[in-house]
Design a protein around this nucleic acid. Structure first.
Length: 257
DNA sequence: ATGGTAGACGCTCTA
């Protein structure tokens, strides 16, 4: 059972890449972020022809999330964070088989100290409170997505730039991520690898991918109940090398047994 | 050095 997360940065533009990657990688469950399209424009028919059912919550231009599942029903869908009014479409959760899948497109936050940064921290606190309940209802859970937080200095290309006070690596953001992990969630990538310099996002600017100036901000978290079955995890850099790519690469976790 | 690039939209915002 392979479960992946990919920020596609416009599903309209990236549909050929998604098709190619689904065919090559055959993930069982996928969370997409930044689909950037209304629900009536979501390509569920084209995905069904590829063998994937889909549920989605989108809007024009910005944000947008979806969960895909191959040859499995998707049930008990939750759209958005319960009780947290938000015009931005960043959260979708659903049950696939025995697993609860929570797909997050975490707020970017722009810069430390801005209103968008304050919204990021409020949003993360609401996610934490919701997931505390959600984990009680669904102990077998995978929380995945674009977290827009690099967990520690191994996850940034240059710790002299990416440190406290900088967006994506500030102490408050990392504390908010730790508060999620403290619910009983585990960064699957770190279960099997302690190496630094493995990234999931490279800015389009400054030839960042060619120079491997990246961050690891796309994560797959597994709950205590799933921890024992997580046999491998990684990031698939290849789609980032394709022509007209997303700025993010897919992150995945393999569950065995 | 307040740049650089990409996407969606519309004459700018977000990342």
């Amino acid at each position: 059972m392979k479960i992946a997360s990919w920020n596609v940065n416009s599903l309209n533009v990236r549909m050929p890449h998604l098709q190619q990657w689904l065919a090559a990688s055959a993930p069982d469950i996928v969370g997409l972020q930044e689909t950037k399209l209304d629900d009536e424009r979501f390509p569920d028919g084209a995905l069904a022809e590829l063998g994937y059912r889909s549920v989605f919550l989108g809007q024009k231009t910005y944000n947008g999330v979806a969960i895909l599942a191959r040859d499995q029903a998707i049930g008990d869908v939750q759209y958005g964070i319960p009780g947290f009014a938000d015009e931005q479409k960043r959260v979708i959760a659903a049950t696939v088989g025995d697993l609860r899948i929570v797909n997050l497109y975490v707020v970017n936050g722009q810069a430390v100290g801005t209103e968008k940064y304050a919204y990021k921290l409020r949003w993360l606190a609401a996610v934490r409170d919701w997931l505390a309940d959600e984990l009680r209802r669904h102990p077998a859970m995978v929380v995945l997505g674009d977290f827009n937080i690099a967990p520690d200095e191994r996850d940034v290309h240059d710790p002299a730039i990416w440190h406290d006070g900088h967006i994506l690596t500030s102490t408050e953001e990392r504390a908010a991520l730790k508060a999620l992990l403290d619910l009983g969630l585990h960064d699957a990538f770190r279960l099997h690898s302690q190496e630094g310099g493995v990234f999931s996002w490279w800015d389009y600017r400054q030839a960042a991918f060619r120079r491997d100036m990246g961050l690891r901000i796309d994560l797959t978290l597994v709950s205590d109940a799933v921890l024992g079955s997580a046999v491998a995890s990684g990031i698939d850099r290849e789609p980032r090398t394709w022509e007209r790519p997303s700025d993010h690469a897919p992150a995945w976790v393999q569950l065995g047994g």
